[in-house]
Design a protein around this nucleic acid. Sequence first.
RNA 1: GGGCGGUUAGCUCAGUGGUAGAGCACCGGCUUUACACGCCGGCUGUCGCAGGUUCGAGUCCUGCACCGCCCACCA
Length: 855
Amino acid sequence: MDQHPINLPDKPALEGLEAKWAARWEAHGTYRFDRNHTREEIYSIDTPPPTVSGSLHVGHVFSYTHTDLIARFQRMRGKVVFYPMGWDDNGLPTERRVQNYYGVRCDPSLPYDRDFQPPDKPGKQPISVSRPNFIELCNRLTAEDEKAFEHLWRHLGLSVDWSRTYATIDRRAQKTSQAAFLRLLKRGIAYQLEAPTLWDIDFRTAVAQAELEDREQPGAYHRIRFARPDTSTFVEIDTTRPELIPACVALVAHPDDARYQPLFGSKVVTPLFKVPVPVRAHALADPEKGSGIAMICTFGDLTDVTWWRELRLPVRAVIQANGAFRPLTWGSTGWESHDVAAAQAVYDQLANLSAVKARARIVELLKESGDLLGEPRPITHPVKFYEKGDRPLEIVTSRQWFIKTMDFREELLARGVELQWHPDYMRHRYENWVNGLAGDWCISRQRFFGVPFPAWYPIRGDGQIDYTRPIVPTEAQLPIDPSTDTPEGYVPAQRNQPNGFAGDPDIMDTWATSSLTPQIAGDWLGDPDLFARLFPMDMRPQSHEIIRTWLFDTVLRSILEHGSLPWKHAAISGWVLDPDRKKMSKSKGNVVTPMGLLEEHGSDGVRYWSAKGGPGTDTAFDAGQMKVGRRLAIKVLNAAKFALMQAEPRGAITEPLDRGMLSSLATLVQESTEQFEAYDYARVLEQSERFFWSFCDDYLELVKARRYGDFTPEGAASANSAMLVALSTLLRLFAPFLPFVTEEVWSWWRTGSVHNARWPTAEEVVAPIGGSDAEAVQVFAQTRAALGEIRRIKALEKRPVKAVIDRAVLPRRFESLMPAAPDFKAAAHIRDLLFGSIEEPQLEFAAEQLPEPRV
RNA sequence: GGGCGGUUAGCUCAGUGGUAGAGCACCGGCUUUACACGCCGGCUGUCGCAGGUUCGAGUCCUGCACCGCCCACCA
């Protein structure tokens, strides 16, 4: 054992331990990753990169603590832990923040200005800057945020190797994203397509299926009649979006629906616009919904897209990228009508209106024409929104990049089974998502800040861009920005000129980069040797609401690129709930600042509360639990002080109580190890804590007199030696949870860091007593039980309570604790629980048999 | 509409078919030489509801209710 003379502080305290030990851990490289190990010797973690353009909240503290518990356990088990930290500075939140902070606006058409400096204060008019300049500003601002985040994480005690950080917009991340994209492009797995795409009209960008959310919205069914030519009859349909009548391309009913079977193949005429549209049959049409026949528009919803594609219908798009109805000329190709003038007159009243305004207007017009039957019937129904958006999504046809997903569903499901989930039931969310996939992954976004697509396109002599023949760089040239870099074989002056080239204007979805965090953190391209030592990684920790995005996308990219899972384990954290059982969030104004919590309760106290929240379990924010954790940490200080303040003499551990205590501790160590291996850290803490309090209140009290030398030197030596084994073991059991106080106590008499010490083993704990002593465990357990019973009798006697005591059992219990009789009686003395004060014959009988302590 | 979790003491939650648990809160006692940031004791339950399996169910099965989350083709 690496020990030095015991060096106890006069008055041990928690205050200042965070700063003291965070600095020493950094100086000593306690958590530094050493790459000179094989994959089997390494435990690698795919740390979630927090979004830096916000602030950390208590939910971050909660879930990052969970990861740290595992990291610390694995490190103590002897694994070389790869525990990096990333910063997510890619994407819309950063874009917005940089715009407001510096008063700039990104214009991707501008050239890079090497000497650009932002104004000290943002002006009223935003300054236009190039995309590279914009990214520089982002890096500058996020560097500040990252410092604050790192400070908090260090204060919390995350055992991250701070020399291994990355940012999701840094050069390595860009190169990784672009290279992975180019490889998929080469294999035909990445492709571009002009297609109807979910579109946010405020952000003016395409969004992916994974970024959708449904919101219940008020709406109304409008019953509208379509005329049947050559008859005086009508077909009635229900729609919530009557404004899309000009975009109607067909009606559809279920093929088995007898009501509409006679109509299939015939044509009807749209109201107001007098456009002939066919009536078609499709199994997706629901006879139960509305009138059982629906209007297909290009495009009102995703079902429209399905019908449009499968029935090979024409496109009549009316909604523009900004959400407004586009002006158009009736009578031109694709916009035929039986009454062009009337159609134009109606449509001109809708042009340039938003969908909501157009709807109001067209309802008036339908009423006037008599084509609206009855009043609109209000309903609430789910409407798709971009999760960050404020207005419903529209579907707009545009050119986008996709990654093939649908072709890999089988393998995605199989990998989901192979992945070990903690807790296991979280795998259902993944499977649910894979089974519900509706299309390939749209990865292009019409934004400015992000990883650009590494592609240019030739411009033909007529000035048209030829998207079918993208020009791509070599991997060695990456990262590139097509808005400023020039492709091989061209000169910069040819940009956007006939016979020249044009850069791809889009950027990648942030998940297209985040899905490569194992490759980015492990430096897949730059350091293949390192990557091979890390990948597939051991653990991905994350929260459950991004299983469909981050987890799913990472699995997909790993399958596509490596043919394997990206990690063996997925550890899913729950949420922190406020007292109203709602998820804590900034918008609700109920977030407590993490640093304030750490200062008030101590990092160990806050970590204790976090660790009580088991994998996947939503946990109420509870300052009371943090106080309990803080008290536990203080108790560790004081118990350690007691054990170490008079640690001589030492010698053989012969006393039954000492042997029983150590044998029980060995069981705890065994169970804790198994639980930790199964990622059940919360159970480890609970059981270790239970043992520790009993250790303090029962064991230490029982042996106190003996260890002070009241009986024999051998007895004192036995107690002292057992206490030190127990202390060393308990400190290591608590080290992942309470890294500061355990390190402090460890430093009083041990060399090195407790966090680099080996996790205890059951064999080690009972080695000094020659193996587990089952008989002594009985003595230990029964002595504690008897002491408890005496205490209860004492309390009951003092208050005149009609206690029912099993008088027959008491004497037997005392017989069984005879091997620990002196300790037992001494403890009773110390606690003023003298038997004589209890007028129970059985107790007196028992007490007489106990030898007197040798005072 | 489908799926997944949850429902146990006033609160937060453990609970592995075998006598219902912990902490907090509350009440009472204790200057006791590690710790009053402490120690000892006490009070507190139709284990959501209804059936079923079993010698025995908080635990397993079926159904239902409520809470939360995830997903879904929004006419």
